[in-house]
Amino acid sequence: MEILVTGILLSGTYALIALGLTLQYGVARIMNLANGETLVAGCFVAFWLYASFAISPIYGLLIIAPAAFALNWAIYRFALRPLVNRAKNRGMLEVDSILATFGLLFLLQGLMLLSFGGEYFSYTFLAERFVLFGSAYGLNRVVAFAAAVVIALALYLFLYHTRHGTAVRAVAADPTSANLVAIDVARTAAFAFALGGALTACGGALLSTFYTFNASMGVVFTMKALIIVIMGGVGDIRGAVLAALILGVAETAVASLIDPGLTLAATYTLFILVLLFRPQGIFGRQTT
């Protein structure tokens, strides 16, 4: 039970990060391998706001989200759009975007290493006991989870109940047809990429309240997010949330029952199972 609750609490932040990536890959068709760096940047900014200005990470989201939105929009507009335009086919764009986002990954990581060094950081925020089903959990984890749920719900409402959100989903489903019904595909893609970055940064800010972080841990989170996205099915919101839950619980279970050093092995086992049996994702349907 304790494992289950800890796992679920962890999965809230995972879900946000994965939702960010699934928007970027599903709508903008860019496999953003620098996603984890956006997350780490979110961690550091939240830390900086809290340590220097005593701004609570929750209010910090109001600064972090728009900043990350703007930064990711700029990255898409100036670094990635040229690749989209020059690619002759999907395969070429895939290779180019992978290499370009690798470049961003190292560049951002290098800049953060320069500014913050390689040490681990953490800060104390709401480190109180919170009793749930007879066991105690960190209040910060519970608050982070609640905030993640609120953000994910807002995203869901936006995507499924607004005009703009429907346009985003249309581009995810089929860019050519979306173009035919007068949706500005290029703008929607840029918007989705930026929104994805904002979600990921929020995930990072929330993560920093209960997790020790350092400048070079981004890649591990990119991995996890990618696996969640693939498990859930690319561009699938419900799938990503469910996959995040599964991953969070599986990781917590392996860490507490077998060995904390084997979390990646747990992630990979899930990944292999998905690749072998449902490469199109949990809810995915084989395309014609």
Binding site: A100, F102, G103, F106, L107, L113, S216
Partner: peptide, 10 residues
């Protein structure tokens, strides 16, 4: 080193 690698990729 990271920055150099990043720039090389780009």
């Amino acid at each position: 080193t990271s920055i150099v690698i990043g720039l090389a990729f780009l």
